[in-house]
Design a protein around this nucleic acid. Structure first.
Lengths: 205, 205
DNA sequence: TTTTAATCGTTCATAATTTCACGATTGATA
DNA sequence: TATCAATCGTGAAATTATGAACGATTAAAA
């Protein structure tokens, strides 16, 4: 199967989440039309996304919730659990450590790092806080896949550099600042300010 | 001038932020090439985005940082300050209340709402926490533009409904769940889980 | 003054994404 | 059994976004 575009991957992950919720409500059959109403995406787009995998739907009936979920997950995640390492245990970092969405499955926070001596050694939600100097060692030990930047923007570039040095090749940056990294490293950003202003401007014009 | 696509708006907001940072470092001239290196976007795309506004660059020189910033801001933001209302003062909500990125300019948190009696009446970072029942009144009083959902996913739909009822027509949803709203209301989501898994899958394949 | 090199703005071509249109399949109904 | 309505899967068309190419302009250097 060919590599899927990132946008498709994002949508498929949304389908997985939606199917999970449907299964919990004991809705074991679902049509592209219904998924469309829940997610706000068009039904054709949903069918086309799903058709990347295999013919699994039945005309007149729809998809079996659990079969579809399993098929999508098998392709995208293959039972992997993503290991996260968090850099920065301030307000935002602490919220991420306590984020209930991670504690169900698929994502596991394996370690947190900070420079504040008062925080080091503590455990939040089962995750231990280490001094940032130990990042290379700890990241190898726990096989962290993705590093999260949750430090003040003044420090985000140096933290990013250190993450790369520690062996991380995927970074999610919460700081409102662009970081430069070697080409082999992937960075994505979650920037609250830009998200909010974009919603404002887009609706405004 | 024609309405800009959302993707363009998002990029332009990134330029504005970048130009701000450059000005702080006293770099008062910048070329599309340099902006490209900082942001990771291609220089052609940057020039094309900028050309939506007016001819403001000089060949061989680049753009005047402050002029360009002013031009982009004038078009997109027009000196508006975006007023936010936060729903849910848990871990994530508290982090948002303390988020330093907002306290500079352009975005102002005007009120927070919660159902927990122990939180109501408190002030975090200058923002008062009200009982959620008072949302319609407070939102009108402070002219909130955008509502933020930071409640557990089990409650996000009811909160969204109540936001719409209170007069909000733009919602930023941090809960990992799709919410349905009337067509005139715009919802965007920031979903940590999907962001992380998408980064994982995309790099993985 | 002329030449040179950097950089802008724009056109055109390419690629990616979304939407449309429709045939095929299925379960329910007459 | 034959018909009907719902829904899937998909090829083609339309739209949107990206990238390449290049002339035009400018400041600096020769």
């Amino acid at each position: 199967m060919k590599k899927l575009p990132r946008k498709t991957i994002t949508r498929v992950l949304l389908y997985i989440r939606t199917l999970e919720a449907l299964a919990k409500e004991k809705r074991f059959l679902v049509s592209s039309k219904q998924l469309s109403e829940i997610t706000g995406l068009s039904d054709v787009k949903i069918r086309k996304d799903i058709s990347n995998f295999k013919k699994i739907g039945k005309p007149r009936v729809g998809y079996k919730t659990l079969d579809l979920k399993r098929t999508l997950e098998n392709y995208l995640l293959q039972n992997n659990v993503v290991h996260l390492a968090l850099f920065g245990v301030g307000n935002l970092g602490s919220a991420i450590l306590s984020y209930p969405g991670f504690h169900q499955n698929k994502i596991k926070l394996v370690a947190a790092f900070d420079i504040d001596r008062r925080k080091i050694g503590k455990t939040i939600n089962g995750v231990k806080i280490y001094p940032v100097e130990r990042a290379p060692e700890i990241i190898k030990k726990y096989h962290a896949d993705i590093g999260i930047i949750a430090v003040p923007k003044e420090h985000c570039q140096e933290v990013a550099d250190y993450m790369v040095l520690s062996g991380l090749s995927r970074i999610l940056n919460f700081a409102p600042y662009s970081v430069s990294v070697p080409a082999k490293v992937q960075v994505r950003s979650i920037d609250f300010t830009i998200k909010i202003l974009s919603l404002f401007c887009d609706a405004h014009k």
